[in-house]
Amino acid sequence: MSAITVAKKDFADAARSRKLMGLTAVFALFTLGGAFLASWAGDLFAELEGEGAESTLDLVFALQTPAGYLVPIIALVIGYAAIAGERESGSLKFLLGLPHTRRDVVIGKILGRSAVVAVSILVGFLVGLIGLFVFVGSVSIVDYLLFTVVTILFGFVYVCIAVGLSSMTGSTTRAAAGAFGLIVFFWFIWSFLAMGLLYLVEGSLWMDDHPDWYVSLLSLSPDAAYGSAIAAVFGEGQFTIATAYGVENPPLLAEPWFGFVVLAVWALVPLGIGLWQFGRADL
């Protein structure tokens, strides 16, 4: 109950942030652009192959890219100062002076900031949906909603990472550096390291069949897991790493449903460490 009280207040506070409004606007622009590109590409294919407007899945595919990049940024920007910022400013003493446990505060922050990120995603996707209606004409609302739900889940995972980081330190600078470092790590370093490892093991980067461990490793980042989870929901392989590498029988870790497990681990591990650190910290 206490966590809900904290979450409600936190939502009211964070939802009034200008940063959030700006990020949401950028996100909406990108979904709109994605919708436009999807319809443009669809028309192109229609001319070439004589087919009509493409399925909603293709549209989802077009929107997954902006969402995959922007949702983590929104969640990290919204979440990185959740705890560290209050420790720095001193408002945490007001919060903890009231009868809330430290755990309540962290859980409340995650719920509050997740709700904020969810609103941002909903606004962005609503604009995207309008765009799809305008540019394409017809969209499967159910598929679109499923996609939205999985994306909100993805946002939730990054909020857990951000708030987890934020609870580990009393400095927003360090929390921000951690959040920024994670983005760089997942986007660039992860696949770079995997490639280096591939070269070390196989002696080459170019091969017809990539080894299972390589496909598994690449599937373990939260961003890849997001694709896997979408694939699992739609029963379509086209969003997964395995498909990208042409693997027909993906290893367990690269299975679409396993994306949910990966997402859960990415949410819980930073959160667990954050809770432990914050629980024993001198404020």
Binding site: S2, V6, D13, S91, K93, F94, P99
Partner: peptide, 24 residues
């Protein structure tokens, strides 16, 4: 509790702060 050097939530009104304490 009135802690030293305490900060408010800039974006929330005074009444919201008190309401939050009451609910808490």
């Amino acid at each position: 509790i009135l802690p030293e050097g305490v900060e408010t939530y800039d974006r929330l009104t005074g009444r919201k702060h008190v309401e939050f304490a009451i609910e808490s």
